[in-house]
Design a protein around this nucleic acid. Structure first.
Length: 376
RNA sequence: GGGGAUGUCGCAUAGUGGCUAUUGCAGCAGACUGUAAAUCUGUCACCUCACGGUAUCGUUGGUUCGAGUCCAUCCAUCCCCA
């Protein structure tokens, strides 16, 4: 696996590149749809490929380990085979569940004891086990097992947690060195910068992560409720320390505006549940602004869902129709809205890439941001 | 024609003498960032930006310190018998 940096913007720190994997190339900057339990909720793989034009999707180690479990995944020949997705996959390690399932887990130096949200059973995750499971899942990019700290987070807690994440990272790399891919395709381990919203901690963490000389690096522990200014200042700081020639993955981000702002700071990869989850809740992101399709004002609006949209659903269906489907709780509503939002996110990063390569990114971004914030 | 039952804020419901009339649905709006989320929150008689104020349990009257609740009357709906 290798990353080619094609072009860096002159006015901003935005970059365009290509990350080559054994399952194909990823053109950066890229947005990666989230498919936690082996499915991008409500979307067929064919739609991901052809309508959304997803180049890589996410899976989740913790969720896939609990269900369907390692036996099924291994006998299926890995996650790609199991779900019928031949393009790249990235798996999160379960570090986010240390944060999101904080009510049912216990952290120790050795690892984290989780209580399953499905049946209450207990499971102990260690850095080594997170690697082993991700070997069995077989994703192209696999993530280090970390603690995603909450916001707000006490300085001393953030510092201790960060150091533990750094120790866990060494164990992850050791386990990588002692094991082999199971399905013949290269797997790259991305380490994760932590340090909450503290500049000295972020600096120390970014330097530590950079020293491992990984194929790509990730920024974690953000978009957990902190103000956008904190997200941006931490991202900018960390990007200034992480190596230029390696892809940078900002985990869990974000809104369309977040994406453009962070692309301009030098972030290459993003993932977020927002486009898919909010689609299920009736919120549509478009190039002209945000639509809450449940609102009464769309009841008689028979214009296309998104006249500027690139997905077929944008032209074929009307706002009034989608509103009806949402109000009627029809399954098709979720499918249409999710395809739209993900197609929009993928269009946004593709367009950003085009503008970076053309040298017009900065102007384009300044013109886009007010529109993206607009409430229609 | 005779007998019986029931009327509660759009719909459905709880409430049989005591303080702001319950809950669900529908409606209206908001939230959501490495997915325990097709979820959650607010609102939902009228007036007021708000504080707050004024109402209301089919109708009209009555009993009572006090009535959605008890009594009478009328109206409406449903059921049974002719």
């Amino acid at each position: 696996m290798h990353f080619n940096l094609l072009h860096t913007d002159t006015k901003t720190k935005a970059r365009a590149g290509v990350l080559q994997t054994d399952h194909g190339a990823i053109e950066t900057p890229i947005f990666m749809p989230v498919g936690t339990a082996g499915s991008v909720k409500g979307v067929h793989q064919q739609e991901l490929r052809e309508d959304i034009e997803a180049q890589i999707i996410l899976g989740n180690t913790y969720h896939l380990y609990l269900r369907p479990g390692l036996e099924v995944l291994e006998k299926a020949g890995g996650l790609h085979q199991f779900i019928g997705w031949e393009r790249p996959i990235l798996t999160d390690s379960g570090g986010y569940q240390v944060y999101s399932l904080s009510g049912s887990r216990k952290i120790q130096e050795e690892g984290v004891k989780f209580q399953s949200h499905i049946n209450g059973s207990y499971h102990f995750f260690t850095p080594e086990k997170a690697i082993d499971i991700q070997r069995t899942i077989g994703a192209d990019i696999i993530m280090a097992f970390d603690e995603c700290t909450p916001y707000p987070c006490d300085y001393n807690y953030a510092k201790r947690s960060m150091h533990m994440t750094h120790r866990w990272l060494k164990r992850c790399f050791n386990q990588m060195n002692e094991t082999e891919p199971k399905y013949g395709c290269e797997q790259a381990l991305f380490p994760i910068v932590q340090g909450s919203v503290y500049k000295d901690l972020r600096t120390e963490s970014a330097e530590t992560i950079a020293s491992h000389d990984a194929i790509g690096n990730a920024i974690g522990g953000l978009s957990v409720g902190e103000p956008d200014e904190e997200l941006y200042s931490m991202t900018d700081l960390v990007c200034s320390i992480l190596p230029t020639e390696k892809p940078r993955y900002l985990m869990g981000v974000g809104t369309p505006v977040n994406l453009l702002e962070c692309i301009s700071m030098g972030v290459d990869m993003f993932d977020c549940v927002m486009p898919s989850r909010n689609a299920r809740h009736g919120m549509l992101f478009t190039s002209e602004g945000i639509i809450n399709i449940k609102n009464e004002k769309w009841e008689l609006d028979f214009s296309p869902l998104d006249p500027h949209g690139t997905a077929y659903v944008d032209q074929v269906y009307t706002k009034a129709y989608l509103r009806h489907l949402v109000k009627a709780k029809e399954n098709l509503a979720i499918q249409i809205a999710t395809i739209h939002n993900l197609a929009f996110y993928l269009w946004l990063v593709k367009e950003a890439r085009k503008q970076i390569l053309a040298g017009t990114f900065s102007e384009w971004k300044d013109q886009m941001i007010p529109k993206l914030k607009n409430r229609l």
